[in-house]
Design a protein around this nucleic acid. Structure first.
Lengths: 120, 120
DNA sequence: CTCCTTAGTTACGTTGAGGTACTTGGTTTC
DNA sequence: GAAACCAAGTACCTCAACGTAACTAAGGAG
């Protein structure tokens, strides 16, 4: 086994890590961890994401094998997204980071306020 | 307690999450999880980061209360960085994501190869 | 007297992620 | 018969992140 290491510049795991930390990826994973969802449902739950960027994010996740995309050629179109088994193994790690952000947001905000006070 | 939710556009936890997922933050946390380190040591272990961006990353982490910065006014200067108690609570969640990237890099690369084959 | 050290700062240039606005398509509601 | 519906595709634009190169500090080595 090649032993990947994100600390090494040329290691492919670094590009993987970078995708995981894309702006909307953790939120999309959070939404899909509740089960499959349609494009519009995801868009509804992830506040502030535009259709274009959500499409790009989902395509990128599909390419990386994290989600499956099932399109029905009906009109209007209906497209379902679902986490793959690989994508499901991501739920716990990303949820941990998300939950850290939510649980420690208060402390971080306080630290910022303190820091900004000590700066001219 | 105000109950933070990253899925809500205006929630402060979202800016916190965004900082955690800055390009170099997870790697810096990984390095500092081994103990305090000097600027040059961090720079040496995080391959590819430039001095300017590492400075910015560390300053931002200091502002958020994740690291302490201890400068000696000697010449040449010596500056030590260390995770705060708050920063140390970040080690486990971020290590989980880092380790996911390393352990599943192979599968992601395979998925990309397969996907790219099915595209003209 | 010039070089090298460390941990920056500053000015500037580049890049790419993300955002806005417009277009597509066939069926239902006004 | 026009307009909304849903999930996009595309062209264009913006801005913040990131990068490069040059400069700074005080003292010791060559």
């Amino acid at each position: 086994m090649p032993s990947f290491d994100v600390l090494q510049a040329a290691c492919p795991s670094r590009s993987v890590l970078r995708h995981l930390t894309d702006r909307w990826t953790p939120m999309v994973v959070a939404v899909l961890s509740d089960g499959p969802a349609r494009f519009g449902q995801i868009r509804g739950r992830v506040e502030g994401v535009t259709a274009k960027v959500l499409t790009e994010t989902l395509r990128s996740m599909e390419r990386d094998g994290l989600v499956t995309r099932t399109a029905q050629a009906t009109m209007p179109p209906r497209v379902d997204y679902e986490l793959t088994p690989l994508g499901r193994t991501l739920v716990t790690p990303l949820a941990a980071v998300r939950s850290w952000a939510e649980q420690h947001a208060e402390q971080v905000l306080e630290a910022r306020a303190r820091y900004d006070d000590t700066v001219d």
